[in-house]
Every structure is written in structure tokens, then in C-alpha cells.
Design a protein around this nucleic acid. Structure first.
Lengths: 300, 300
DNA sequence: TCAACTGCATCGCTTTTTACGATGCAAGAA
DNA sequence: TTCTTGCATCGTAAAAAGCGATGCAGTTGA
């Protein structure tokens, strides 16, 4: 047998009241219950905690003194755990584990996190970047509570809240022959060399844009590095399809870029906030979801 | 309802094994038991600790991570309490609360405590000096576990272990007319002025020595201070009856004293080690009792 | 001295909780 | 598909907790 927290609470109450009966009254329970709890503790530890004075309550033995002090400490610790738990579910403080798709991160997160810090200064967001696969894995295993990513082949068990719908665009160097047009046709692009953003799911998505038109892209370069795609395009290594639009027309190298819409009708992508469907969100996570919803208008 | 330590242990085991079933096996209990313990904890705190993966166990949510860490901490603390308790009952270390009669203390304790430190260096004896009344009170209320005192009007609920039997003796200044005798008669003493050691019970005892002979002592001075009695006697203020014999024939003032036996048959006093009868001694207290028994021969 | 009272322990009973095997169900693996 | 895995639920059995009644030893107060 193992002792229970309740037994300890009874023990401490008896020590405080100097009487089993008084403790029972204070705890709104019966005297025999307290009595047997004490007896059990004493039996379990082979110690005598109280000296029984007939008709005059009980008093602590030296061993009892010492044990009660330790028991009090443990009970306080147990109380802490309850507090900790309520803080986890109730309070708007603590950690929020947030997953975010690599390329989405630099576009949206700076403002979102700033807004979070503004509205909920006591919530610290811990960021986990990764590709769709990794983010989904982290969500399902519970490493992160929320993830900001594309709605690309997500498990049906994930609930998705759409934040923004984005259409792919064509990225060209400013000096490109097609750069002067209002929009570019996939027909015109297909024969040209392409720079592919080579991330799981994204990869297939960009290629499918062509396939749906019965076309096939010619990939010259592949990279998982979004900014490298822009750099390669800017330097004349080909065109690229992308979804996200940094607000700068220059590559890191300083070359000029242009973004042009696609003439054909192409599948849009949803940027979503996702979490396991069966998981009840903490208040921290809810706060973030709400904040994202409110920020949608500003996100574009 | 309040959570229990067992529920926490189950929770932690599930977190460690990543599976309810595995935890049940490890703890030699049934899977439904674990399952419901988790469910109860989650319900109580309004939190979800695990994400259930069909046919693939469970994994911790962020809240679960945090809670399990805290739970582990509390369980470790609970384990500490058990350790603490066994240390209290089993180990020969820690505190021993010892009561000692004021006048007995300087005679016996120095050697006894030295022997204790020698044999049980990890037991620290905390000393409570006092008169019979105070010592008995401390024993019965549990403030001290043992007391070294005279067996004078002790409550029958105290168990007594006799360490030494002492006869009262007559204390005289070296220059006193009776000081040359081998023994002194109470008849000769009764008319002389007496210096009385005025402690509860001791007081009555010394006077009863005369009364039992049909005599009445003439008390000139009373004091609770043992050494003051010796000083007063040495300076010629009267004779005294005492039980304990310091091994020095001089008072603090440097005057010479002599101790003489009493001619008549007088009641002896027992120096005893006492403790509440119903109290099971700790191993520390037992160690002290044993050491006292062994030291009896040396005590004289 | 005696009767009334106090306060802890024990007993028997009821209620609640815990434990466990059986079963169901959903998703992964073959 | 079919089999397997693993958690949840259900019904029953065992254990524990709670409680009123009672006993008993010692205290209190007349």
C-alpha cells in the first residue's frame, strides 16, 4: 500500500488542531475516518506520529513533528501542481508551441508575433519551422499545438482554419522579355527554364499548375531556399512560380524582380492555421487563433 | 474530487511508455484502469494531456508535456517523504530530543553525550533541561522522546529504566565540627540550619528524609541552584542534603567541602531514563537507552 | 468520591471508488 | 481485404472510504 495525499492532509489537520475530532469537524468529515488515516500512516511508516491524551486530544511526537513538516511541504507542492494545471488551461500566459511553414514564416510571423506580444505579453510563442510533412507530424504528435501552413495534402484529422487564399504568380527578372506584360500565359512559360521551389507538396503543386493545362515545366534548378529561388530568377537563370509575395522587388543580390499574374485559371492555395481535430485548444492557442482571424485583413 | 498520487504515477508511466497498454503492463495493472485515471485527470483539470493515435499509442500535448514534468517532480517529492519517514524510524541519524533534570545534567551528560557522539556520530542530541514537572510535561506532550531524571512522583504512564540508585548524603564545610566523623546522624543535623535545594519534588524528598525519622529540618536558605547550595554550605551557612556527588571537594569560591553518609536508613532515589509507556521508541532513542545501560557501571 | 464529559479507537454497515475481463471500434499493417 | 494494434467503454467484483453507534480511559467539576 502507498500513502495518499488525503491521508497526509488529515495528518496535517490533526497536527494543526491538536485533536482528531477537531480536525474532522474542520474538514467536514467523520472522526473515525481521520483516526484510521492516521493509524494507516503510522502503520505504513512504522512510526508513531501522535501521543494520544485521553480526553485531551493528541500531540506530536518528535518524529511526528518532523514528518508533519515534510508532509505539509508535499501538500503545498501538490497544491502548486493544481495551480500549474489551471494556469495551463486557464491563463493567458506560458508557452504556445507554434509550427510554421518555412516560407510563410518571414512573411506573416513578424507581424503576428508582434501583435501577440502586444495583446498577450505573457504568452511566449515558441516557433517550430519546417515543411508540411514535419509540421503535420509535429501537430499529430503533440509537439506543437498549432501550425501555420498550406492546406496541401493535410491529414483529414487536422482541423483547418483558412487565413488567406493565394494564387500562384510568375516571378521574372525585370529585364525578361515577358516582364512587360500585364499577365503571363503558362503556354509561354512552359518551354522556358524553370527554377523550382523544391519543398514537399509545394513541389508537386507548382508542377501540377502546368499539368492541369496539359503542359510540362522544364526544371533547370531546384532548391528548398525561397530566397535562392528569387536570386536565381533575378540573375536570369529562369522563371519561377511562387505563392508568397515579399514586399520587395529586389533579390538579396540587388537585382530587380517582377511578379506577374497567370493568364490561365489555376488552383489557388490556402494558407491555414491547423490543429488536431480532436484536440481542445488551450486558451493560449485560442488567443492566437483569434488574433490570426482578426489580422486576416492586414495579412495581404 | 482531488487527484491522487496514483493517478499521477499512471500519467507519468503513460508518458514514459508512449502507450496506455505498455504502462499498464509495466505497472502490473489493467489497461482500463490507466485509461480511466488519465481521463479523470484530464476531466479534473480541463486539459488534454495526450493525443490518442489509433493503433499507435499516445503522445503528449504541449500542456501534457508541461504537466507531466510537474507531476514527475511531485512524485519525486512524494518519494522523498517516504525516504524521510524511513530515515526517521530506521536510521541512526537525525535529532534525538532528550530531557534532563537540571542537576543531573552536569554530572552525567558530558560523558553520555561524548559516548553518543563516539558511537553514533550522526545522531545529534538536543537537550531540554528542566525540573521534574517540566520534563514530565515535555515527555507526555511529545516534545522530548526521553528524559533523564529522578523517579520522583512520575506519572504511572511513564516507563522508567533505572540507571542508578543514589542515597542522600550530608554536605558540610570541611571545617565543620561534624566533618571529621565517618557518618552523620540526622538527629545531630536536625537542629542545625539547612540549605535546601528548592526544586519541585526534590524539596519534598529532602524534607521527608527527616520526617521519616520524626524530625523536622530547619531551613535557613532555599535555592534552585545546585552549585549555590554547595557554595552556601562551604561558606558556613549550614549543611545540606544532596544526592549527586560532583567529583570536586571545592565550591566555586574555592572553599573545601566534605560529603558524609547518613547513619540512619533513608530512602534512596532512582535516577531513571523515562519515556511514555505507549510510545514506541525510535531507533535513535533506543540507541541512547542502550548506551545508558552500558554506561551504568561507569556512571558512579 | 462520583457523575458527567471529552475524545480516540473499534465495529458494522452503506456508499463510493478502483480494478479487471470482455467487448467495441477505428486506424494501421500485411 | 483481413488481421492486428491499442484506446475507450461496459458490467461486475473487490477494495476502500465514510459514517453513526458504541466502547473505553482519563479528565473535569461538583
Amino acid at each position: 500500500m502507498q500513502y495518499t495525499l488525503r491521508q497526509l492532509a488529515y495528518l496535517v489537520a490533526v497536527a494543526d488542531h491538536g485533536s482528531v475530532t477537531a480536525a474532522a469537524n474542520a474538514l467536514y468529515t467523520s472522526q473515525p475516518g481521520i483516526s484510521s488515516a492516521i493509524a494507516q500512516l503510522e502503520a505504513q511508516f512504522g512510526l508513531q506520529f501522535f501521543i494520544r491524551h485521553h480526553a485531551k486530544g493528541v500531540s506530536l511526537t518528535p518524529a511526528g513533528q518532523s514528518f508533519v513538516a515534510a508532509a505539509r511541504n508535499l501538500l503545498a507542492h501538490a497544491e502548486d501542481l493544481s495551480q500549474h494545471a489551471s494556469a495551463l488551461s486557464q491563463s493567458l500566459q506560458g508557452n504556445l508551441e507554434l509550427g510554421c511553414f518555412t516560407t510563410i514564416a518571414p512573411i506573416f510571423l513578424p507581424r503576428l508575433l508582434a501583435a501577440m506580444r502586444e495583446d498577450y505579453p505573457d504568452i511566449s510563442v515558441r516557433l517550430h519551422e519546417g515543411d508540411t510533412e514535419q509540421l503535420q507530424q509535429a501537430l499529430l504528435s503533440g509537439q506543437t499545438e498549432l501550425a501555420l501552413l498550406y492546406d496541401l495534402d493535410l491529414a483529414p484529422s487536422l482541423y483547418r482554419q483558412t487565413l488567406q487564399t493565394v494564387l500562384p504568380y510568375v516571378l521574372l527578372p525585370a529585364a525578361h522579355p515577358l516582364a512587360g506584360q500585364v499577365a503571363v500565359s503558362l503556354q509561354d512559360l512552359a518551354p522556358l527554364p524553370m527554377v523550382l521551389l523544391d519543398l514537399p507538396h509545394s513541389r508537386e503543386y507548382f508542377l501540377s499548375v502546368f499539368r492541369l493545362q496539359g503542359l510540362e515545366a522544364r526544371v533547370r534548378h531546384k532548391t528548398v531556399n525561397f530566397e535562392l529561388v528569387r536570386g536565381l530568377v533575378a540573375a536570369g537563370n529562369g522563371y519561377a512560380l511562387l505563392n508568397l509575395r515579399p514586399q520587395t522587388p529586389q533579390s538579396y543580390a540587388g537585382d530587380q524582380l517582377v511578379c506577374l499574374p497567370i493568364v490561365e485559371e489555376v488552383p489557388a492555395l490556402n494558407i491555414v492555421l491547423a490543429w488536431p481535430q480532436e484536440l481542445r485548444l488551450t486558451r493560449r492557442a485560442e488567443a492566437f487563433v483569434t488574433l490570426c482571424e482578426r489580422s486576416i485583413s492586414r495579412l495581404g
